[in-house]
Design a protein around this nucleic acid. Structure first.
Lengths: 130, 130
DNA sequence: CCGTATCCCCGACGATACTG
DNA sequence: CAGTATCGTCGGGGATACGG
């Protein structure tokens, strides 16, 4: 975009800014799990709560609200007794979820390499401490 | 892996666990920016500090250590006076960075949709409050 | 030039109890 | 069933100052 600069090349701020932006949408502790659970079939609050181990009702509510606000989740209230509420991931969320795959795959494929690097690093540290 | 269950289909925990795992590596505030700045050419501490606006020396050091520990950044000390240290992203980090692209692209392409969704939601909220 | 050491703040998250 | 209210914790990250 810019003409050449003399510096060794500046960082592209746009790319990593966009990444941070994505994280603001889906980087929270439960965001992705909720979207994953709500893709392709509507799911009720209690089901959601059951299918995501460890989440509290509070965080479920909060995260759902954020996702809804960002247009990633649709909330449908059926005025029955007892009340019934269904959540569905929007197409936007499904695209987002798909874009997540590359990163997940990387993590899955390279988890061991990272673990090995850590072990080596920590070993070195321990040795240095002696 | 498991035989079929009767439930409406449980979430795949592996996928989103892997995503969370990736975030543990590169989800910190400055992680990606540092990797981006250190790809394809070694870069010195001070240069890094200059090319990433807003980062403190403290966070630069801390994040670099984590990345180094995970095998994503290589640290090379040249024993000169004054001291000179160069950081380079490893091939592993470059793969990781590449896997980041899909998400960044999504954010760039859909930023406006999200903004619109927010505006609509907040409008609704404001109306409901009256 | 390349970091470390301290102190502090704030927002994400969890636990628990209550409500329509 | 589907939330809300309140309180407390914990750690990431910023400001500042010092050291090799």
């Amino acid at each position: 975009m810019s003409a050449g600069s003399r510096l060794p090349d500046d960082v592209e701020p746009d790319t990593c800014a966009a990444f941070r932006d994505a994280l603001d949408r889906v980087g929270s502790k439960w965001g992705i799990a909720i979207i994953a659970a709500a893709t392709e079939s509507p799911i009720r609050f209690a089901e959601l709560h059951r299918s995501i181990p460890g989440i509290s009702r509070r965080m479920l509510t909060l995260t759902l609200r954020t996702l809804e606000r960002d247009g990633l989740i649709t909330r449908t209230v059926h005025p029955t007794v007892p009340p019934q509420v269904e959540y569905t991931a929007t197409p936007l969320a499904e695209e987002l979820f798909a874009s997540t795959r590359a990163l997940s795959d990387w993590a899955e494929n390279n988890h061991e390499k990272v673990a090995a690097a850590r072990a080596a690093y920590d070993d070195n540290e321990a040795a240095r401490a002696r």
